[in-house]
Amino acid sequence: MASTTRSAAPTVGFDLDMTLIDSRPGIHACYRALSERTGTFVDADLAITRLGPPLAEELAHWFPAERVAAVADLYRSMYPAVAIAATPALPGAAEAIAAVRAAGGRAIVVTAKYEPNAKLHLEHLGIEPDALIGNLWAEQKAEALREHDAAVYVGDHLGDIRGARAAGAHAVAVATGPYTAGELHAAGADSVLADLTEFPEWLAAYRDEPPSAAARA
């Protein structure tokens, strides 16, 4: 008779910005540097309140459409020198990755961030996922989650919930980004955590529960 518990070691996907790392200080500094470089004002205080979507969507608020692609390239080229050292890991980030590994699973990072810069963040902070896939937003993230057979995806944004659902993965939301726990629940997250410090305990409970009893924590 088949087991009714989730005994298999899961592959767990994690978002990057405001899930594993607090990218606000680095991105704020990079937008200010971009303003100085281009002579075009970017409200960095406002921009860091709406992290998650692709860079081009934010730049479109400040630059004409015909300049967005070139300015995005400039921003990405400036980013390593300005943003990496200024960006800390969020509480519980390393421990969340370790919990997946301790369970015999694989931890992957799937992010909308430009992949080379995402890699620099992880290297700087000593976070070593089994795979990193960048340049994917919202439902696009389902491509990587399905490719890696991820059972769970953890993120802070409504787009992360949409990506998890598109992949048929359990959507775990952390209230460390722009949305409250209540908003994440209302958007359809399967489980909501205050932050990643709660993830190891959640993972242990998730693996022990029958699939039909998935908790909306």
Rank of each mutant, 00 (worst) to 15 (best):
A166V: 07
G155C: 04
Y75M: 08
A194C: 10
R106K: 14
L203F: 02
A70C: 12
E95G: 01
H121I: 08
K141C: 00
G163R: 00
V100E: 02
I84M: 07
L203G: 03
P80H: 09
P64D: 08
A151P: 01
D156P: 01
H170Y: 13
A150E: 02
I127T: 05
A151H: 07
N135P: 04
K141D: 01
K119E: 13
R165I: 10
A83S: 14
G159Y: 01
I133Q: 01
H170Q: 12
V192E: 03
E128T: 15
W137H: 14
A138Q: 12
A70M: 13
A173V: 03
G92A: 00
K141Q: 04
P116L: 10
A60L: 14
P80N: 09
T197L: 09
V68P: 03
H124N: 14
N117K: 08
Y153K: 05
L125E: 08
W137A: 10
K119V: 12
I133M: 07
V68Q: 01
Y153Q: 00
F63P: 01
D149Y: 10
A98D: 15
S191Y: 03
A70N: 11
R106S: 10
A131I: 00
P116M: 11
L90H: 01
R76C: 07
A98N: 03
G159V: 04
A89K: 10
K113H: 10
A205Q: 14
T176E: 03
S191F: 04
Y75K: 07
L74F: 08
E147K: 11
V152D: 02
H61W: 13
A164D: 01
H185R: 15
A81Q: 15
T176Q: 05
V172K: 02
A187W: 10
A138I: 02
V100T: 00
V192M: 00
I161V: 14
H148C: 05
G104M: 10
G182E: 15
F199Y: 09
A171D: 04
Y179I: 03
T180A: 11
P91K: 08
A72D: 09
E198N: 04
G126H: 11
H148A: 08
T87V: 09
P178D: 08
A94Q: 13
A173N: 07
A85P: 06
A94M: 10
T111E: 03
M78P: 03
L145Y: 08
D149C: 13
A81L: 13
K119S: 13
A72G: 15
A89D: 06
A169C: 11
E201T: 15
E147N: 11
A164S: 11
R106Q: 13
G163A: 04
